[in-house]
């Protein structure tokens, strides 16, 4: 099974590792740039959630499973929800990013 990709398994592993690391690093930088340059705040937050996700994969690549666990729980669980709730409270009438009109249900 080891010789699925024939020419020198070790060389392939090295190349694949390098490609994976490089792609992850570039992706992280690109996501950070898009997050900070995005004109739409909601899009910025979604991109920031994706940023946390890629960061968790990078922690995994750096043999830091503890940090990856914390990042997965906090980045995916708490920060995203916190920022989305903050945006909803910041712009209660914003088209596209608003909680449903609460008054219209009750009254």
């Amino acid at each position: 099974m080891e010789t699925l990709i024939t020419p020198g398994n070790d060389a392939w592993v090295a190349v694949l590792n390098l490609l994976l690391d490089g792609l992850l690093g570039l992706l992280l930088l690109w996501l950070a740039w898009r997050t900070l340059a995005s004109a739409d705040l909601f899009r910025a937050i979604v991109l920031f959630i994706a940023f946390g996700l890629v960061l968790a994969m990078i922690w995994a690549r750096l043999d830091a499973a503890d940090i990856a666990l914390a990042e997965a729980a906090i980045g995916a669980g708490v920060t995203g929800a916190l920022l989305l709730a903050a945006l909803a409270r910041l712009h209660p009438d914003r088209p596209g990013t608003q909680a449903r009109p609460r008054g219209s249900d009750a009254s």
Binding site: L69, A72, A76, L84
Partner: peptide
């Protein structure tokens, strides 16, 4: 943990930030 917690963001989205 990722698989479990992925739902939270989307719940926050539907409850707080979706019109």
């Amino acid at each position: 943990v990722f698989a479990l917690l992925a739902a939270i963001t989307v719940v926050a989205f539907t409850r707080r930030a979706w019109q």
